[in-house]
Design a protein around this nucleic acid. Structure first.
Lengths: 269, 269
DNA sequence: GCAAAAGTGTTTCGTTTACACCCATGC
DNA sequence: GCATGGGTGTAAACGAAACACTTTTGC
């Protein structure tokens, strides 16, 4: 490693990025944390992140660090904000720019350092390093606001999902309960969801041209997802990543954009 | 000036702050800009801001620079976000953390450098330096979202204001028109506004115990505000900073907090 | 077969929207 | 006195909330 020194007329803070990765296991909203092997805060958990390079934007830096530390290749990071408390890092003056990202279940793959990365339900979080609890609260807050304006829910689900899954996700994010029937109506009447007919999924070809088999084979069908990895979600080992009954839907980006335009970019779920 | 050098093992970006100050003259939403005297972007206009000191948070830095450059002593800055495009400053790698602030009319005072500061209506803005147009758009966007959740309108008005004033402000910020009667109802039924009865204002004492003089002397009454400075707002010289007829209201923070709590921190105007 | 969850439609209620009149002010 | 703008009430329309029943799934 080079040992060049860089000299400036005035002191400069170090600049890092951090990334709050949200995931959803069908029941709880989760975040991805990395256990710190070194002091300070050794043994505490922290968001993936690191120092910003001079040739990348903060967003690019956050993406790079995320990839390096967890193997996740996520785009569409949303900026949470800059955190600049003078003593937030005991070693040095460090300013961090935090983002959040949405991981689909299928996106989770073991990266090089992934052994140290682990998902935690947001109400079962361990002690966090630095001011990461503060970053988390801000990220959560922003997620809750953004979900009213952006199709965030769909970023956290697989390509095809059921309405109850979507509802549970909204409830987990917003911390409130919806009436099942009203939620259906509201979602469907936006027109941004496509009913996943058999003929639409390439998976259906595994099973030929069955009509009216809607719910009978969903379990098998979903089990057929070759791309679905074994998730390192900590709790609830295996029960509901398999059990997925009911009608499947998918998110229609085109219709969504139109809907958004019609509503003056205000999506209020 | 010191010529000490500061040396680091890895290169570090410079970190600045910028502050988008919003103001309202009764008709238009305005922002405060400073003309750049030096290259780059000499002659362009920019938001007040500057380099961050090592012993201050970004918010403190933005407040300090704002005070230094415009004389404005504003608190409650809201972070807009960090801007980190690699080439946003042609001289050096500079990351800026942007905020917005709300100036009451009465807050505007000529500071040392204030001669160079000028208010512009947001649809009559000059060419901006750096990526400040980008910062402006983000700030505007955030203001539009925040006004649904925070009592922003009242931060931009004087202590006492009329309903039409408040409505014009909301319309200027959101860029839409409201029905006057519906706006009244909606605002009043939140309960966060106090009707400014004569006996509530110390100014009323100037006029003794007149009852039922509601609208007759408001002009004089308002003219009696010793603290109202001569505003450097560029357009519309003098007509409506004086003409303020109609019932006056004031913002009741206590009731607002209660209202907010009752509505789960969701204010939807 | 039975319990639990998924899927659908209707009624009620409250909020938002649209709209009309009177009063006060200022020329 | 006439034009402009401020202050209030009411009816229609829309969207949200409450709610019950049937079907499907999994043991």
């Amino acid at each position: 490693m080079e040992t060049h020194n860089y000299t400036y007329k005035y002191p400069r803070p170090a600049v890092t990025t951090d990334c709050v990765v949200f995931g959803f296991d069908g029941h709880d909203l989760k975040i991805l944390l990395i256990e710190r092997g070194l002091d300070p805060y050794k043994g505490c958990w922290a968001f993936p992140g690191g120092f910003l390079n001079m040739d990348e934007t903060a967003e690019q830096g956050a993406m790079r660090e995320l990839k390096e530390e967890t193997g996740l290749d996520l785009h569409n990071l949303q900026q949470v904000g800059a955190f600049s408390e003078v003593d937030r890092d005991p070693r040095d003056r460090v300013i961090t720019i935090a983002f959040y990202a949405l991981a689909k279940k299928a996106d989770v793959q073991g990266g090089d350092d992934a052994a140290k990365a682990q998902w935690f339900a947001i109400n079962e979080m361990p002690r966090l390093a630095f001011d990461h609890d503060c970053i988390f609260r801000k990220a959560m807050q922003k997620l809750r606001i953004d979900i009213h304006f952006e199709p965030i829910g769909f970023g956290l689900l697989d390509e095809k999902f059921t309405m109850p899954e979507l509802q549970r996700l909204y409830e987990a994010i917003l911390g409130i309960q919806f009436d099942r029937r009203n939620f259906y109506k509201k979602m469907l009447q936006t027109g941004i969801l496509d009913k996943a007919e058999d003929d639409e999924t390439e998976l259906a070809t595994y099973y030929g041209e069955h009509k009216e088999m809607k719910c009978e084979d969903t379990e098998t069908l979903f089990g057929g997802f070759a791309s679905e990895p074994c998730l390192p979600y900590s709790t609830r080992p295996d029960d509901d990543s398999r059990r997925r009954k009911g009608t499947h839907f998918s998110f229609n980006k085109q219709r969504y954009d139109k809907f958004k335009e019609d509503n003056n970019f205000r999506l209020e779920f």
